[in-house]
Design a protein around this nucleic acid. Structure first.
Lengths: 211, 211, 211, 211
DNA sequence: AATGAATGAGCCTTCATTCAT
DNA sequence: GATGAATGAAGGCTCATTCAT
């Protein structure tokens, strides 16, 4: 319990505001001044606490990410001993939950980063996505069985993940029907659709047909 | 019919350079100076020809867009009388070809635009995506059969398109195995995977199971 | 004859003001704002014309230097065929004239540079001093004769040059008596004093005595 | 008599670090942060102990000054009864020793101060230089004899002192040959060179020639 | 006595845009 | 039609200093 400022509170306040603004407007379009005004600190505060705008950017992202991770565990609440299909469903659900979380800032930031790459987050983001990726990979491999090549596994993983990361609020169009659905319904569709797809790949492998 | 240098050539040169730079670095990260240096024109040329940076942005995109459409027909060269599976394959191939066309960065721009909406391109982008969308929709509807609801159709369409629009050069990750594959191979995978997925949906509909 | 601005005039105006201010207050203590206010140009003008403050600094110095060089030729007006003593006198006079020139800015800048080294001028200044140095060296070598080692030459050169570069306006003291003298009188003293010094070195060398 | 950490130790640590940094980089180029980091004290310590950066500057100098005087007596260890030539040699040696003392950067600071007068040190520097000056003056007067005018004395004194205070590590040049020599060798050269110079002045005075 | 947090003033630089030719 | 010069607004960052503990 703290009665006075100890720097940590100010730091957190800046981070909070910054991650919101970065998500809303991107790195380049967010200024020190905006952040500091909203955080009710001096313009120099960013430099004092984070040394550079870039550092603030990286830390803001990490904060947003770890918060989101706490909220939505990667396995979607499914036991690691469950059947592969159920585990896949859990993972897909978890990704969708994160993406659609109204407090979510990190996917917005990733989007912005993709648009106006600063290079600052490159490495950090990579580390974030990787676990999700390998998790799905291992399940795909299990379902596909021993005959599957690395390429087969990667293609299926890509098919699954890209469905999850589908852009919402599509420009110029309206996915209205889908956007109105529950996360659970969408997750169920993606899971079924994908398992059928993977099984198809497996069958073709077993029957010796080329892909 | 031109009598002399009538500004059209300069205009085109600027557009060419601009569309490349906007695609590579995003709107905000591209400066007048960079564009004009590469286009070998004066700094004032952009404002002379386009009034504002935003206008240049919009026009650069439109140019890239129309050029691309000419190059890759939406049906991928498959006859409208062919089997649905073949037509789907043609469409997927066409999308992938457009996306990966080295001469054309239009989908990079769409990515940027999505993340950093300036509102400038919204309408134009809509016109680009919409035909692709309805094309795939109709095929999905045909395969799914009469029992399929609008929602079923949309979900499958989404599953297909998102696989095609998967972000390449993902930040911080490497889809290396896939990125080295031929377009044709990837298109084949997505087609098979998706048809299996759609068929699964159809079977569940026919057996009366809920989604 | 130019009726309108062609950029060169503005450039020169900035350089003029800048070299004065740099001389008066040093690099770090001179701001864009001061320079631009006095030069009656926009704050961005420095960046437009010189790209960086550092470049302006370097160019200001070069301008001041070349102006000073035009005014006071290095040989002090003495023919290269004259006797070594006379030529030395000419050089010493030339250095003193430059240093005491009321329009002189370069020695002030060198002083400032020595105090708050920016590293920007290091190389440039080196090139400036070198000719003066080698000029004096060659005369010293001629007077000393063949027996003189490199060290002997350098020591004498140092003795001569340091007298010329003696700091004026000494802090905390007043060289008042000397400061009131004519340049010519001081130059005569340094020349006589130095030639006697060099001759002493030569005699000791000839008599085989160690230094 | 100290009862506990009474601030004196911290003060001294700051002074030590500060005098080094000021000497190395000049007043303006040295920041609170650098000093405090190296002195392992808090950022606020400087203002707590010295009120202002300027005060620290002045005190740092004074400390360096008093330490240096203790170490190298002004007469260079030569008896006041020795021959003038020997006494001059002692003084020159003493000056060179002080200047080159690796523990003490005071002459570096004088250089900076001269170039960038803050006015802070003026008086103190005066007190440092003045005794050296009068010492050399009196010897010069003795060697020159009764006919010498004040101007003659001052000119010779200037010639001697300027050789000693020659700027080392000249910007952009390399006095390499000299800088590698022993202090003793350089002192011997300056002494011989100067005595020959002074004797020349005396002879010209005696022979009635104008300067 | 000593500290870490916080501040405000100011600096260099960038950039889209306008102006005069 | 085209240009180089010039501008103003703003942005990121530095730094000596002050404040509350």
């Amino acid at each position: 319990m703290r009665f006075r400022k100890d720097g940590e509170e100010t730091r957190q306040r800046i981070l909070k505001v910054a991650s919101r603004l970065f998500a809303e407007k991107g790195y380049r379009n967010t200024t020190h001044e905006q952040i500091c005004r909203l955080a009710k600190v001096n313009t120099a505060a960013i430099n004092y606490h984070f040394r550079k705008k870039e550092t603030l950017y990286a830390e803001a992202w990490q904060m947003a990410f770890s918060e989101l991770l706490k909220k939505h565990p990667a396995d979607g609440g499914v036991s690691p001993d469950a059947k592969p299909e159920e585990r896949l469903h859990g993972m897909i659900l978890s990704i969708l939950r994160r993406i659609t979380d109204p407090d979510n800032k990190i996917f917005e930031i990733i989007n912005k980063e993709h648009a106006n790459p600063t290079g600052i987050l490159t490495e950090t983001i990579g580390k974030t996505i990787m676990p999700i990726r390998t998790g799905i990979e291992s399940i795909v491999r299990k379902i596909l069985g021993g005959k599957a090549s690395e390429q087969d596994v990667q293609l299926c993983r890509m098919s699954i993940m890209s469905q999850c990361f589908r852009r919402r609020r599509r420009i110029g169009g309206h996915d209205s029907v889908i956007d109105k659905m529950d996360i659970e319904e969408i997750a169920a569709h993606i899971t079924h659709f994908s398992i059928d797809g993977i099984n198809g790949v497996r069958k073709r492998l077993e029957s010796g047909k080329s892909r």
